[in-house]
Simulated scan of single mutants.
Amino acid sequence: MSNLISRDTFPQSQRRDFLKTATALAAAAASPNLWAQGGQLEMARLITGFSAGGTSDTLCRRLAARMTGGYAKSVIVENRTGAGGQIAIQAMKSLPPDGSAILQTPMSMLGIYPHIYKKLPYDPLKDVTPVSVACVFDFGFAVGPAVPASVTTVPQYVAWAKANANGSYGSPAAGSVPHFIGVLIGRQLELEMTHIPYRGTQPAILDMVGGQLPAVCGPIGDFLPHLAAGKCRVLATSGATRSQFVSGVSTLTEQGLKNMSFTEWFGMFLPAGASAETVQRANAALRPALASTEVVEGLAAMGLQATSSTPAELAARLKSDHDRWGPIVKAIGFTAES
Rank of each mutant, 00 (worst) to 15 (best):
N3M: 14
L4W: 05
S6I: 09
T9M: 14
Q12R: 09
S13A: 11
S13E: 13
R15M: 13
D17G: 13
K20T: 05
T21S: 14
T21E: 15
A22G: 12
A24T: 09
L25V: 12
A26L: 15
A27L: 11
S31T: 14
N33A: 11
N33R: 15
W35D: 11
Q40V: 11
L41W: 13
E42P: 06
E42F: 09
M43S: 14
M43I: 11
S56K: 10
S56L: 14
S56E: 11
D57I: 02
S74G: 08
V75N: 01
E78P: 02
G82P: 00
A83K: 07
I87V: 13
I89T: 03
M92P: 07
D98I: 07
G99F: 05
A101N: 14
L103S: 01
T105S: 14
P106D: 14
M107T: 03
P121L: 05
P121W: 02
Y122I: 01
K126H: 10
V133A: 14
C135I: 08
V136E: 12
A149R: 15
T152Q: 15
T153D: 10
Q156A: 15
A159H: 11
A165H: 08
S171Y: 02
A173P: 13
F180G: 00
I181K: 03
V183F: 04
L184A: 09
I185A: 02
R187E: 09
M193I: 09
M193H: 07
I196D: 02
I196V: 14
Y198V: 03
Q202W: 01
Q202V: 05
L206H: 07
L206Q: 12
V209T: 03
G211A: 07
Q212R: 15
L213C: 06
L213M: 10
L213E: 08
P214N: 04
P214G: 03
A215I: 13
V216K: 11
V216A: 08
G221S: 05
H226G: 05
A228H: 10
C232D: 11
R233W: 12
L235A: 10
A240T: 00
A240Q: 02
V246L: 14
Q255I: 03
G256S: 04
L257A: 00
N259K: 09
M260C: 04
P271H: 07
G273F: 09
T278N: 06
Q280H: 08
N283E: 10
L286A: 01
L286K: 01
L286H: 03
R287Y: 13
A289H: 01
L290H: 08
S292Q: 08
E297S: 11
L299V: 08
A300T: 02
M302F: 02
G303T: 04
T307Y: 07
T310A: 04
A312D: 08
A312R: 03
L314W: 05
H322G: 01
W325L: 04
K330L: 01
A331I: 07
E337Q: 13
